[in-house]
Design a protein around this nucleic acid. Structure first.
Lengths: 244, 244
DNA sequence: TATTCGTATTATGTTATACATATATTATGA
DNA sequence: TCATAATATATGTATAACATAATACGAATA
């Protein structure tokens, strides 16, 4: 049973999708360019309109094409992120991917420093200052942790980095962040103040003003310490269990 | 014209998609759980099977459900990334998003340090060593830059970080990286050796072995310097032009 | 008794056709 | 000339029918 190769089990829609992508590339179509009508594809590819529609629907779902109601379809710049916001609901996800996404947020915030410093403007700094002041006024008693303020501050950082895809990502990760946060708040809160090197939003902001990407990364690492700790501590717990 | 509200312009498929998602949440369905048949939805929602199919197809395209051929559909853990690899072809993308994605890669590699150090194993280090040695042997004359070796090394780092979503991301960014690299190679290559603080793969590897996340981030920043520079220099060029 | 084969069942995959509806263009009428 | 109406067009939706693959179950065979 060696010289016999498996037949392709691809569905017609699969094949048509591939053909469509080839067509776009071969004809060097770019975002904004109109594409042929469903019926034209039906003729040239020799399959039913349903199949064409399903293949096109996939590409639409992924944001590669857009249908101008009743007038035709055009290629579009795929918005990689926003399509997923529809389905990325923590209540629909398994714990594995939630963990991955939460980690991804930490990675992004640790990694964005250079862009932050390169692209910050005076206006950005003023707005950031306002956010911090607002936050300090509201919970001057420091007795509770406000998720809104947390999001306002960190969201502003993403905005300063001025990368649309990155910002879209933050929007995507927001519900995950909320979800994980709600589950862990008590411990988080305790940790924040038991840590010897707690870094506040104000300290981060000052760092952006007068520091360097390098100093900022270290500050951010301490700011995020509770999250890193909770991830790593749990892993150590699990591994020590499995060793027994 | 105040008391009249705009009618919803959503298509039937849009509405059905929303209903399906609500259904999944309300019934607390999780990845792995089977979902009702197309015809059952047809009856309970009162629309044609066509519409049900299109709505389900969207969710399949996004990776939220999976169809077991001819046996039904189940909820799945959405693979956020891999679905996009189909359409994320540099030749189909505009320059804006390409730039964003390239930047994203830099952010990820700068931000992953803590996970790298937390999760590295002896096996990982051995494999990384092998990659570096292999690379050094092949282009001992240092006269050319091998994309393959670059990918092997950095890909291994993603792997060590042990975050599936992150690894998927790297796969996604790979064609973008290749594309940008091919366009910029001459300058890149020159830059690598004109910079005073060039950090090789070997130096990065040694850092992973004996350093800390902090030292590694600094090393990685220097390793990626050519890329950061090319992005920031171009921005400064553009802004100085627009000021004139 | 256990294995294999055939068959019924079932749900998705595919085709075909018709009609609905929104948009742009063209034709019509005052 | 201008507003209105008719028309063409492309996608959106509905319906019916058949194809096909996966599974389960029962019959045939050793």
């Amino acid at each position: 049973m060696k010289n016999i190769k498996p037949i392709d089990t691809l569905s017609l829609v699969d094949k048509v999708e591939i053909r469509l992508l080839e067509f776009f590339k071969n004809n060097n179509l770019k975002p904004g360019d109109p594409i042929p009508k469903e019926l034209e594809f039906t003729e040239s590819l020799g399959v039913s309109r349903t199949v064409i529609r399903e293949a096109l629907l996939r590409l639409r779902t992924l944001g590669l094409v857009e249908s101008k109601k009743h007038r035709g379809m055009v290629l579009t710049e795929p918005d990689i992120i926003n399509n997923f916001s529809r389905i990325l609901d923590p209540s629909l996800l398994g714990t594995g991917i939630l963990k991955n996404l939460f980690e991804l947020r930490l990675i992004l915030e640790m990694g964005m420093a250079d862009f932050l410093f390169e692209r910050k403007t005076q206006k950005d700094l003023d707005e950031l200052e306002e956010i911090v002041v607002n936050e300090e006024e509201q919970d001057s008693d420091k007795s509770h942790f406000s998720l809104d303020k947390e999001i306002a501050f960190h969201g502003k950082l993403y905005q300063i980095s001025n990368n649309k895809t990155l910002q879209g990502f933050q929007q995507l990760l927001l519900p995950v962040f909320e979800y994980v946060h709600l589950k862990n708040e008590p411990q988080d809160f305790k940790h924040r103040y038991s840590s010897g090197r707690f870094v506040t939003h104000r300290m981060l902001m000052e760092n952006i003003k007068v520091g360097t990407p390098e100093t900022f990364r270290n500050a951010m690492r301490h700011h995020l310490e509770p999250h890193f700790d909770s991830i790593f501590k749990e892993e150590q717990r699990n591994s020590s269990i499995s060793e027994v």
